[in-house]
């Protein structure tokens, strides 16, 4: 009986970590991430005036967004198939995928800490952060019909 309770407890713990709908959850995080990048892009392109407070706010929000990217919970083996553009390479090279996510987190944290005070500083931070989008998507994302 004890062991049964124990295994239920373990199962329950495991369950609280795993996400009920990991594909939907990770999509929501990526959507939010894109939206945040999109708030900075007009400034970088000179379509909007530079606003240091806004920049700090967005980089902090990106940092929080990166922290939510819990790979074991969001990319379980069971979520390879389905309405997803995640490449099978994620599961073939989980260490590489995690390294890419860690690099993004580190770059975002550095950008938030740098608190860019002018457009050139923003361009440098933004370039480093946004470079992660292309490199990670190149390796780990695939279009589907």
């Amino acid at each position: 009986m004890k062991s049964l309770i124990l295994s239920i407890a373990i199962a329950a713990t495991a369950f609280s970590v795993a996400s009920a709908d990991p594909i939907a959850d990770r999509k929501a995080i990526m959507k939010e991430r894109g939206g945040l990048v999109g708030q900075l892009a007009p400034m970088v392109k000179g379509e909007q005036p530079f606003d240091a407070a806004k920049v700090a706010e967005v980089f902090t929000a990106l940092q929080a967004n990166a922290a939510k990217f819990d790979i074991p919970a969001l990319f379980p083996e069971s979520s390879k198939e389905g309405d997803t553009t995640a490449s099978p390479k994620i599961w073939e090279d989980m260490a590489g995928f995690k390294a890419a996510a860690d690099k993004f987190s580190a770059d975002v944290a550095a950008a938030a800490a740098a608190k860019p005070q002018d457009l050139d500083a923003l361009k440098a931070s933004f370039g480093t952060v946004a470079g992660n989008c292309a490199s990670c998507h190149e390796a780990f994302r695939v279009k589907k019909g």
């Binding site: 939206g35 990048v37 999109g38 292309a134 998507h137 190149e138 695939v142």
Partner: peptide, 20 residues
Amino acid sequence: KSGFTPEFDSAGGAMAAVVK
């Protein structure tokens, strides 16, 4: 130019290399 779509999704797979 940047690889970003109007929704700020970004190019993936071989297209990321093309955008370079």
